[in-house]
């Protein structure tokens, strides 16, 4: 595939508002579902316990079925490094996330999967969550390149740091190939370290 196949300049799809702060990766996917040697079955377990305990959970709502843009609160994805969390969301159908802030390992895992996570202000997030709730069929556009989110006739500012933005827009987020390009410079760097070279 050429880099353009991987480019994530913008994502357009229906929205899914998920209010609340500090939603951790154990909540997104409980540890008992990690006992798998593949990620294939993760999608059906996204928020499984939360969905069972709360019939009103947005992931249960028929109104948001087929949504691909998740709109969350502060510190989403904190806690465990389990990639199973973004894998579960991705396999549920989520293609982009807009929130107030993100757990850093979760954010990095999302980049590795080509899922942009954009940061918006608290006021804009509250507006967007309510607006989506009123018109769940209307598409949301997450513009990674322009760092904005568009819904109906309104545009809100939503940022993503330069490095990940360049990776997503340039289609270089699948990083193994990029890292391998360094070639012998990897061993050269290692060879200068006293603990590798020998004290």
């Amino acid at each position: 595939m050429s880099p353009t196949d991987f480019a994530r300049r913008q994502v357009t799809g229906r929205g899914l508002p998920l209010p609340g702060n500090d939603i951790d990766t154990d909540r997104i996917i409980p540890a008992r579902f990690l006992k798998e040697v593949t990620f294939e079955g993760m999608g059906e377990h996204a928020f499984e316990d939360a969905r069972k305990q709360n019939p009103e959970h947005p992931f249960n709502s028929p109104a948001y079925k087929g949504a691909s843009v998740l709109v969350v609160g502060q510190n989403f994805g904190c806690g465990s490094s389990r990639e199973h969390a973004p894998q579960a969301l991705m396999r549920w159908g989520i293609r982009a996330i807009v929130g107030g802030s993100f757990g850093e390992i979760f954010f990095g895992n999302c980049v590795m999967l080509g899922i942009p996570c954009l940061v918006a202000s608290q006021a804009d997030l509250e507006w967007l969550q309510k607006a989506i709730g009123r018109a769940p069929q209307q598409p949301v556009t997450v513009d990674v390149e322009k760092q904005e989110v568009r819904f109906a006739d309104r545009v809100i500012k939503a940022t993503v740091p330069d490095g990940p933005r360049n990776q997503l827009v340039g289609g270089t987020w699948d990083s193994t190939a990029v890292l391998l390009e360094a070639g012998a410079a990897i061993e050269a760097t290692a060879g200068k370290l006293p603990y590798v070279r020998g004290f």
């Binding site: 490095g163 990940p164 360049n166 340039g170 990029v178 360094a182 410079a185």
Partner: peptide, 10 residues
């Protein structure tokens, strides 16, 4: 000490 290079992404 561990920097191999700066990537195109920055």
């Amino acid at each position: 000490a561990h920097t191999v290079r700066t990537l195109p992404s920055g």
